[in-house]
Write a protein that binds this DNA or RNA. Structure first.
Lengths: 156, 156
DNA sequence: CAAAAATATTTTACGTGTAAACAATATTTG
DNA sequence: CAAATATTGTTTACACGTAAAATATTTTTG
């Protein structure tokens, strides 16, 4: 599980990447692959996919959020949102509600089971014991986070 | 094309992400989505997928590289590598060579057509006119790149 | 050296996420 | 208000990438 076992330091040293090694696009994709590897190392058993905890987390913070708003906030496409929310509903983690004020939309909130799931997995996701490890100092990690937020167009 | 047209600043302001907004895993995924959106805005017409130019670029810099070494360097899985290289071959961009020294392996090099393709698309990928735009200053972008390299385990 | 283990790639079957078309409801406009 | 347009979510068909098993070759080991 996780990183391809054949990944040797050799590939990093022997292969000449040229300017690609400075490309933000390339570096971001590699970082993303690393995050997913680490995610599955930690959550492979929980039958949880990347993004799913984030959805539940944001429902926890914003009870009754509209499905489309959640999709936008997490950069998840509506079609995918539908499938995942339906599975959450089948698993009893999430409740869908069609409001009378706008019967096209769907409001989402966690069930008690969903709240328990979030509470149980929070420590593995956010904070001290997060799944995502690296060799950056605390200060470097904070700088990286700040620059990524700016890159992403969050904050002013 | 590109970003979901329904993405409003509203989603950024109205939705409370809590600690998720500080999570490197989340920020990296969002950044990756942004990169891909920008990629398709620029290359949608060229019938080129993210990662494909990188493969050709590294073949250009490392003629005769072993297929597996290329896969490791770019964090691309072998199964996917096989498919893509075969398509390159069908398109006449890449030449596969089985060396007598180890007839399990495959050596890759660009054809003249492949070299021309790389030369033509290089400006849109790397350097001044790259597809990947953002609001970071030059210095911030350099810092971001440096931190990502460290995060990825390149260098140091 | 023959059998076992390791390596490099390919094949097959599948899971995740997406675009495009669709359906239902709400809003705007003439 | 009726028709046209916009919004919200769902369905369908498909593309991309992957895990696991298979294939072919090379290396190791008893």
């Amino acid at each position: 599980m996780g990183q391809d076992p054949r990944l040797t330091p050799q590939a990093i040293e022997d292969v000449d990447l040229g300017d690609l090694g400075q490309s933000l696009g390339f570096l971001l994709r590699v970082a993303q692959v690393r995050v997913y590897d680490q995610f599955y190392d930690r959550f492979g058993d929980e039958d949880l996919r990347p993004g799913e905890f984030s959805m539940l987390w944001v429902m926890h913070r914003n009870p009754g959020i509209k499905q489309g708003m959640l999709a936008q906030a997490l950069r998840i496409k509506p079609a995918h949102m539908t499938k995942t929310v339906r599975r959450f509903e089948d698993n009893g983690l999430v409740e869908r509600q069609i409001p009378d004020s706008d019967r096209r939309s769907v409001l989402l909130r966690l069930t008690d089971k969903g709240e328990a799931f979030v509470a149980r997995n929070r420590p593995n996701f956010l904070g001290e014991n997060a799944y995502n490890t690296h060799d950056l100092s605390e200060e470097e990690a904070a700088t990286l986070a700040r620059l990524l937020r700016k890159y992403n167009g969050f904050e002013g």
